[in-house]
Design a binder for these strands. Structure first.
Length: 756
DNA sequence: CTATGTAAACAAC
DNA sequence: GTTGTTTACATAG
């Protein structure tokens, strides 16, 4: 662990301040955050004067007493008949009394009433004082942060945000970054919930489900949910507390960020959010988890760091093209909701972790993928099970789960061609990118989607499905704009390393040659290592370049949560931005395997430099086996409508198959041309290559861009594991060929009613 | 092989 | 000390 001899030196890096560019609102992190306003007040006062005496009584018979053994913890005895509101009121009051320094953990227990459920297993760690009666509903409030979510439900009557938030404050206020608090909404899910799901099986929770559905109210709902807690859940609750959540760090980070209105969060807030929602991290996990969080933030391109205007505060955001706006709520719902059967599966899986306990199995590791429901008839041979009998709408969700089982899923991904032509504005490559990013985000904080520059074009990839493949293959790395190695640097590593060079290699340009060159003997020795390295080095996980990426689905929020409307791609926007980033061709190929490649210069550049290609996330399909997918599955309806969807299918990731171009319209597909989406913005690739004329109709470029972008929907098969993620289905529509209309005119939707 | 988790070395503040 | 990046390793699937 310690010293790693091999570790190359890290060159110095300097941080690029992101220019805030246009971002209008963005500017300060100051943001309009309402937060300050709200928060402050509460907090201000928070004098801890009163401090907690040992016990205080509050309306409705609620009592709050110090936990006998746990510091900073209070036990809140709630009469069965107490209503949520009163609980909140009591806690709020208590919080105010205590101030930020006060207790930050509360254990709610019911008293007086029927013990609903027996205690159940006890938790190791935590709170249990009395196992017996405890029906804990509680949660821990973050030290600072807060309470907000806590289990407390937002009282129905309560003011929406305000009160609620204020509560949060009470416990500590949000920190500067503040955004965290932002949303009232999302935060909602607490441990319990996930917990519940884990154990769930039992959850009868009808209530929950229902609630979920209606999102808007969700405040209430959630609140209730929490409070009430499904029986089953409660039993295991404690356990859950101590258990590691089934989510990957990447997923949790996304949840955290998406829980804010602005969809951005400071590192600290991310920590806090996670601790608040998953007590495991607060109490049990080793301190190294924070390191892991940071590691994930840096590693995945989907996480983009923005610096506030003044440069003092850094916020982490999710790249718009990658952000599905998943929130814990959504995930939760999705997990639960699917039909029972499915659920079962889910549960089962989830349970495993419990039992097994070993490491964790991330349920959602891949948050990114989006499934779109589909049905498609075509060859079912493909993969799907015939199963699809479900009504489409459901199907989507179901599918995901079902498929998941099998490990594959089918999805249709609507894509848009965006970029195309891109215009590639980006003359400046490297350095700039970051900025670009900002822009995008800045533009639409809320709706990130838009701009996105990203849509990246794809470079390569393509599969020959039809026609010819495009050429793009591998862009020479070198070509890239130097500064940033962009993404792919990964590639290189392998070669280099073997190297003997003790010194760090500055960039390695490709020594590709070399490798072959190596002596055999050496090879032997090295081989193994090399291999590893290849796999190992993972620099950032970028978005895959070429591909269009997965569809960014637009999901409306449907299910649940929040308000966010993720509409990812708006037609308009998509148009240009797309080109930008890029595709990095990085790899050129469809293969992503990282090799090393050259990195220019400093190692650091990572994200900033990269053209962002969203890939990683995109690619990543939902959790592997897990069944759930987060993907916001939106019903196609909304998605398809007028808006173009994103495309996304291809990714370069590994499997060659994957890359599949999307067609705008069926017609196009038929014609199958090479898709080139790729225009490389940077031109790193030789244009010639890239340039292949687009398929058939040269689309009206710009002008029609947006229009053109029409949605393309593609059917794709996704295997659960990324690896093969997508396969295009071959579909033929009779008659289409001729479609006089523009490509746009025909959309998959037409053929597939369900889509609409 | 890939994705993920962890630990750690470093750099820049 | 915190925040970010990047390597290296380990491991599950």
């Amino acid at each position: 662990m310690k010293t790693s001899p091999r570790r190359p030196l890290i060159l110095k890096r300097r941080r690029l301040p992101l220019p805030v560019q246009n971002a209008p609102g963005e500017t300060s992190e100051a943001e309009p955050k309402k937060a300050p306003a709200q928060q402050e007040p509460g907090q201000a006062q928070a004098s801890k004067e009163v401090a907690e005496s040992n016990s205080c009584k509050f309306p409705a018979g609620i009592k709050i007493i110090n936990h006998p053994t746990m510091p900073d913890t209070q036990v809140v005895a709630v009469p069965n008949n107490a209503n949520i509101q009163s609980i909140i009121t009591a806690l709020t009051a208590k919080g105010k009394e205590s101030g930020s320094s006060g207790p930050n953990k509360f254990i709610l227990i019911s008293c007086g009433g029927a013990p609903t459920h027996p205690p159940g297993p006890q938790p190791q760690a935590q709170t249990s004082n009395d196992p017996n009666r405890t029906k804990v509903i509680t949660d821990t409030l973050g030290p600072k942060p807060a309470a907000r979510d806590v289990n407390l439900p937002r009282p129905p009557g309560a003011l929406p945000g305000q009160r609620w938030e204020s509560c949060g404050m009470w416990s500590g206020g949000q920190r500067a970054g503040g955004e965290a608090a932002g949303c009232t909404l999302d935060n909602s899910l607490t441990n319990i919930q996930w917990l519940g799901k884990m154990s769930s099986d039992g959850l009868g929770s009808c209530s929950i489900k229902q609630e979920v559905e209606e999102k808007e109210n969700h405040h209430l709902e959630q609140s209730q949910v929490k409070v009430e807690e499904p029986p089953g859940a409660s039993a295991s609750w404690q356990d859950s507390m101590s258990e590691r959540p089934p989510y990957s760090y990447m997923a949790m980070i996304q949840f955290a960020i998406n829980s804010t209105e602005r969809k951005r969060m400071t590192l600290k807030d991310i920590y806090t959010w996670i601790e608040d929602h998953f007590p495991y991290f607060k109490h049990i996990a080793k301190p190294g988890w924070k390191n892991s969080i940071r590691h994930n933030l840096s590693l995945h391109d989907m996480f983009v760091r923005e610096t506030s205007a003044n440069g003092k505060v850094s916020f982490w955001t999710i790249h718009p093209s990658a952000n599905r706006f998943l929130t814990l709520d959504q995930v939760f719902k999705q997990q639960k909701r699917p039909n029972p059967e499915l659920r079962r599966n889910v549960t089962i899986k989830t349970e495993l972790p419990l039992g097994a306990r070993r490491k964790m199995k991330p349920l959602l590791p891949r948050v990114s993928s989006y499934l779109v429901p589909i049905q498609f008839p075509v060859n079912q041979s493909l993969v799907l099970q015939p199963s699809v009998k479900v009504p489409l709408p459901l199907a989507a969700s179901l599918m995901s789960s079902e498929l998941a089982r099998h490990s594959k899923r089918v999805r249709i991904a609507p894509k848009v061609l965006l970029a195309d032509e891109g215009i590639a504005p980006l003359p400046t490559t490297g350095p700039v990118k970051e900025e670009e990013l900002l822009l995008g985000e800045g533009l639409s904080p809320l709706l990130p989607v838009q701009s996105i520059k990203e849509e990246e074009i794809q470079p390569g990839e393509e599969t020959p499905h039809l026609g010819r493949p495009i050429k793009v293959e591998s862009p020479p790395l070198e070509e890239w704009p130097s500064p940033s190695p962009s993404v792919k640097e990964e590639l290189s590593r392998s070669w280099e390393d073997s190297s003997h060079s003790p010194t760090p290699r500055p960039k390695k340009s490709y020594s590709g040659l070399k490798s072959p060159a190596r002596c055999v003997s050496e090879m032997l020795v090295i081989k193994r290592r090399e291999r590893r390295e290849m796999s190992r080095s993972r620099r950032k996980q970028h978005l895959l370049p070429p591909c269009l990426d997965e569809p960014e689905l637009l999901f409306s929020e449907g299910p649940g949560t929040s308000r966010q409307a993720p509409e990812l791609t708006l037609p308009a926007e998509s148009s240009e931005p797309a080109s930008q980033l890029g595709y990095s061709q990085e790899e050129g190929g469809p293969f992503k395997t990282p090799r090393k490649e050259t990195l220019p210069i400093s190692s650091t550049p990572s994200k900033s430099v990269l053209p962002m290609t969203p890939e990683s996330w995109r690619l990543t399909p939902p959790a592997k086996g897990e069944g759930l997918d987060f993907s916001p599955v939106r019903t196609p309806q909304s998605a398809f409508g007028p808006l173009p969807d994103s495309l996304g299918l291809t990714d370069l990731s590994t499997t060659p198959l994957k890359s599949i171009p999307l067609f705008d319209s069926p017609r196009e597909l038929l014609n199958s041309e090479p898709f080139d989406l790729t225009s490389d913005p940077f031109r790193s690739c030789s244009p010639s290559d890239m340039e292949v004329p687009k398929p058939g109709p040269p689309e009206p470029q710009v002008a029609s861009l947006s229009a053109n972008r029409s949605l393309t929907e593609g059917l794709v098969l996704d295997t659960m594991n990324d690896s093969l993620s997508k396969i295009l289905l071959d579909i033929s529509f009779p008659g289409l060929e001729e479609d006089p209309l523009g490509p746009d005119s025909v959309s998959w939707a037409q053929f597939i009613p369900e889509l609409r």
